[in-house]
Amino acid sequence: MNIMGFDRRDMLMLSNLFRMALTDRYLGSALGTVWAFLSPLMLLGIFCFVFTFVFPNRMAGATSTLTFVIWLFSGYGPWLSISEGLSNGTASVVGSAGIVKNIAFKSELLPVVGALLGLVPLAVSFVLIALLQLVNGTLPQPAMLILPLVVLLQLVFVAGLGMFLGALNVFVRDTALILPNLLTILLFASPIFYALTAYPAFAQSVLVFNPFYVIAECYRDPILNGRLPPLWMLAYLTICASLSLTGGLLWFRRLKNFFDTRL
């Protein structure tokens, strides 16, 4: 079996690399893996505080503080996951120079591992949302069954972008340095903290095609409203994810022949 140049052995390698990355990331710190859960929790807490106490009037169409917090988490959680995936993907090749130089394997797995690391903050957000919904008395909706598909599309999309950025970072090390700023700009340019309706009309017609917004919406619709996201969004996301992955793979495979000169 061979999908896009990956076979079963590569899948085994992927799972090994993922476990290695997970331990490496949190090894050597006092609380270890606990940080994987604590840091998204803290970020979510900060934004929760800012938007419910500091700017309470900015609440986006919510009836109570609790529902706003759920709304915020269901959009910001996926964003945390995306940004974690992108920054890990970008740093993945340079950060694993030892493995790339010394072990014969498909290095395009590294940005995929980066994207997978984004699952950690996503899982934390899901747990939090579930708890809050329990407090709120909302029952899990059948529409939520679509979420695994959304997660998959998001991972594919981020993995493709990660391949592009990760390979670029080998040649232009500035990539990893600029990325945090870019991510902040991207966050505020996407209707994640605010409802889409908070933007001027002309901006709305453009922003509605922002893939990051589409991803957030695909999470929010099933979680908040118990209904499936619009079909066009899922279709659009599928197209974005496929383009991102094929483009990223082509780019990565062309450049990886030159990795040895830069690592």
Partner: peptide
């Protein structure tokens, strides 16, 4: 091995290398 310097890194990355 390509002898990559700061300038040629960009060109290499974007396929003009």
């Amino acid at each position: 091995f390509a002898l990559v310097d700061k300038g040629s890194a960009w060109r290499l990355a974007f396929g003009m290398g």
